[in-house]
């Protein structure tokens, strides 16, 4: 096991745990940005340069910032005494542990996976571009439509509604 992989995996997992457990939501968002950067490093180590940089650009540059903005916009007057975990957290933790146990058990018991990479795999940008524009052109166009729809949808959802700016309806 190479040292670089071990360090990257450790830092990424630690920051992922931090993103899930810290009390301050801004800290969570920044830990998440670090996790994304760690994953980009893992992609670079695997030889997927283009994907690693796209990961940095999209996740660290856009998604993390988006989450930070959302945190600031929804910072309510919640009493700090409330716990950050839901009351039924042991159930959730047990489910997650179970999932991990199953996955890890399957991984370690499988025989096909225990082989090393044969040659250095490379993904030249030119080849990625050519494939995107020929073989994957329909998914690419669909993705474009999806992103446009998401853009318009997000703007409409988050747009300030003047009429309904009244106090929240009382819960029954």
């Amino acid at each position: 096991m190479s040292v670089a992989f071990f360090i990257i995996a450790l830092l990424t997992l630690l920051s992922a745990v931090a993103a899930m457990t810290l009390r301050n939501l801004i800290h969570c968002a920044l830990a998440l940005a670090f996790t994304f950067a760690g994953l980009a490093a893992a992609y670079l180590q695997l030889g997927a340069q283009f994907v690693g940089f796209v990961q940095l650009l999209v996740y660290v540059g856009a998604v993390a910032i988006l989450i930070v903005f959302a945190v600031l916009l929804t910072r309510g007057r919640e009493p700090a005494t409330q716990g950050i975990f839901s009351p039924k957290w042991p159930v959730g933790a047990a489910v997650a542990l179970g999932v991990f146990g199953t996955l890890a058990g399957l991984l370690l018991s499988s025989r096909v996976l225990h082989h090393e990479a044969a040659a250095i795999a490379q993904a030249p940008v030119r080849q990625i571009g050519e494939q995107l524009m020929t073989h994957y052109i329909v998914p690419l166009e669909v993705l474009g439509v999806l992103l446009t729809a998401a853009l318009i949808g997000a703007v409409i959802l988050a747009m300030h509604e003047r009429e309904s700016d009244s106090p929240p309806p009382s819960k029954t």
Binding site: L13, S86, G92, V99, F100, H114
Partner: peptide, 28 residues
């Protein structure tokens, strides 16, 4: 080797799953 990366992925997936199940804030 491959299984190290898959284990890394599985661990990350479980951390995310645990967070999604047990946190109270919708953003998290």
């Amino acid at each position: 080797s491959l299984d190290a990366y898959l284990l890394f992925g599985a661990l990350l997936f479980s951390i995310g799953l645990a967070g999604a199940l047990i946190r109270r804030n919708a953003i998290i």
